[in-house]
Lab assay of single mutants.
Amino acid sequence: TFELKGKVGKVVKIAEDHYLVESEGDKWIAYSDEKLSLGDRVMVVDVDGLKLKVKRIP
């Protein structure tokens, strides 16, 4: 299986209740415990079905 946990991506869209993150050339629906901005670099900390939980990284 394709393992996304630990992968790095970038926030490419902000929606009302989720983010769109591009990682490894694909776009994924993501959510975070912190507020993210367009262009933020993020790391995948968990995968919930087809949704990614991400956190901001420097």
Rank of each mutant, 00 (worst) to 15 (best):
K53V: 04
E16N: 09
D48Y: 14
G9Y: 02
I57S: 07
Y31D: 12
Y31K: 09
Y19I: 07
E34K: 06
I29G: 07
K53N: 06
Y31Q: 10
L20C: 09
E24G: 03
K53C: 08
D33W: 14
M43P: 00
K7R: 13
I29N: 08
G6D: 05
K13P: 00
G6H: 01
D33E: 09
V45A: 04
K13S: 09
S37Y: 13
K5N: 15
R41I: 10
L36P: 02
G39V: 03
K51T: 14
I57G: 04
V44D: 01
D26V: 12
M43V: 14
K53G: 05
D46G: 03
G6K: 00
K13C: 12
D40I: 09
R41F: 10
Y31H: 07
W28L: 06
A15R: 12
V12H: 05
M43W: 07
Y19R: 00
L4Y: 04
K10C: 11
L50P: 05
L20Q: 07
K27F: 09
E22L: 11
A15I: 10
T1G: 15
E34P: 03
I29E: 09
L38C: 12
V45Q: 05
V44T: 02
S37G: 07
Y31C: 10
K13V: 07
L20P: 00
T1H: 15
E3L: 02
D46K: 02
R41L: 11
E24T: 04
D26W: 15
K5Q: 15
V42T: 04
G39R: 11
E24D: 06
L20V: 08
G49Q: 09
L36S: 00
S37D: 08
V45W: 10
G25V: 04
D46W: 04
L20R: 07
L36C: 08
V47M: 08
L4C: 15
W28N: 02
V21K: 01
D46H: 03
E24V: 04
D17L: 12
L20I: 11
L52G: 02
L20M: 08
T1Q: 15
L36W: 01
M43K: 03
R56S: 06
H18V: 12
K55Y: 06
G9L: 14
Y31M: 14
S32G: 09
G39C: 13
G49F: 10
T1R: 15
G49A: 07
D33T: 12
D33S: 13
L20F: 09
D26I: 13
K27A: 07
D17H: 10
S37K: 06
S37L: 11
K5Y: 15
V42R: 00
K13W: 11
K5A: 15
L50G: 08
I14Q: 06
S23I: 15
K10M: 09
V45C: 05
V44I: 14
V42Y: 01
I14N: 06
V21E: 00
K7L: 06
V21M: 14
K13A: 09
H18D: 11
K10Y: 10
V21T: 03
Y31I: 08
E34N: 07
I14W: 10
F2E: 15
K51P: 02
G39Y: 14
G25K: 04
E16H: 09
K27D: 07
V8L: 14
D17V: 10
W28D: 01
L36V: 04
I29W: 13
G6A: 01
E22S: 05
D26Q: 14
D48E: 09
L36K: 00
G25D: 05
K7T: 06
G9V: 15
E34M: 07
